[in-house]
């Protein structure tokens, strides 16, 4: 069996004169949580829509479970649970009707699990979805995305605009899904502490390009903030190989450094500098300095 759930190769997409995605290559392996990070308008939703077959690939290719999602929507969408950014449900339906309606499409629908979630989320099955609060609507969408126990759970900005209680529900759902062997979660977010808590792998998307894609631990290990003390004072930051950002004055300069530690020590030694302070960088900091740089 192919162990790549999503395989996107050199995908580019243009809307009018706006380049939404450019030469995106992304591989999401089976199992685990994949976090897609990017500022607003970086192309996260566009990328996700390609995975779901709502956009065709202008150039490059998209393959989900080994299928083309545009040509084979039944095969692909049947194995995906998706919660969109807008969290839209037809307003004229009642909660029970939405559930009954959606159930008809998924052979693997778990009615027991659905009613368990209905109770857990304190949803009234007789209520019209139009009159639900934003949080309750999100819970309905989450229920619809989870109840058929999808192989791949796709959540687009799952917690934006929601209160902490509902965010917790959603994040718990992610944890549960990934705890089951072989099930994969792809979620996009700009709340980086969530990503840092949950993701195994992350990709940073900026202006339609993937600028970083790796395992979260590797990413966290390869960025450091170090403060070096130099013998001589200078007005400009002494150039350090591998540094991507520098701040400071006089004898002490603080760098954001990318690379492994051994190299850093050697580089510092060659500059006659002493490492006086060193802290690991949070995902937040890594994101900000990468986006600023590119």
């Amino acid at each position: 069996m192919n162990d790549l759930v999503i395989d996107i190769k050199n995908l580019s997409r243009r809307f009018g004169d706006k380049q939404a995605l450019q030469d995106v290559t992304l591989r999401v392996p089976r199992g685990g949580v994949f976090g897609l990070i990017g500022s607003n308008g970086a192309g996260k939703t566009t990328l996700i829509k390609h995975v779901l077959g709502s956009h065709y690939a202008q150039s490059g290719s998209v393959s989900v479970f080994g299928f083309d999602p545009v040509a084979d929507p039944v095969e692909v969408l049947g194995r995906i649970g998706y919660m969109s950014e807008d969290r839209e449900v037809p307003g004229w339906m009642r909660v029970q009707e939405v559930i009954d309606f959606t159930r008809a499409f998924y052979p693997g629908w778990d009615s027991g699990y659905a009613s368990e979630l209905l109770e857990l989320f304190e949803l009234d099955p007789k209520q019209k979805t139009r009159s639900l609060s934003r949080g309750q609507t999100a819970r309905v969408c989450l229920l619809l995305a989870l109840a058929h126990r999808p192989e791949l759970l796709v959540l687009d900005e799952p917690s934006s605009g929601l209160d902490p209680v509902i965010r917790r529900d959603i994040l718990t759902a992610i944890v549960r899904t990934t705890a089951d062997e072989g099930r994969t979660v792809l979620f996009s977010s700009h709340l980086l502490d969530e990503v840092q808590r949950l993701a195994d792998r992350v990709a940073i998307l900026n202006c339609g390009r993937i600028i970083l894609s790796d395992e979260l631990d590797t990413v966290l290990d390869s960025f450091h903030r170090v403060t070096l003390r130099f013998d001589g004072s200078s007005d400009l930051a002494p150039s350090l190989v591998g540094a991507i950002e520098s701040k400071g004055h006089g004898h002490e300069w603080t760098y954001v450094y990318r690379g492994d530690r051994e190299q850093l020590i050697r580089a510092a030694k060659s500059l006659n500098a002493q490492i006086v302070h060193e802290v690991p960088l949070s995902l937040d900091d890594i994101f900000v300095c990468n986006v600023q740089r590119s």
């Binding site: 685990g32 917790r168 944890v175 990934t178 705890a179 808590r197 195994d200």
Partner: peptide
């Protein structure tokens, strides 16, 4: 258990 603690802390079970 790993699963319980992961759900409690809301972190990846891995």
């Amino acid at each position: 258990s790993i699963r319980t603690l992961a759900e409690q802390l809301i972190v990846n079970p891995n």
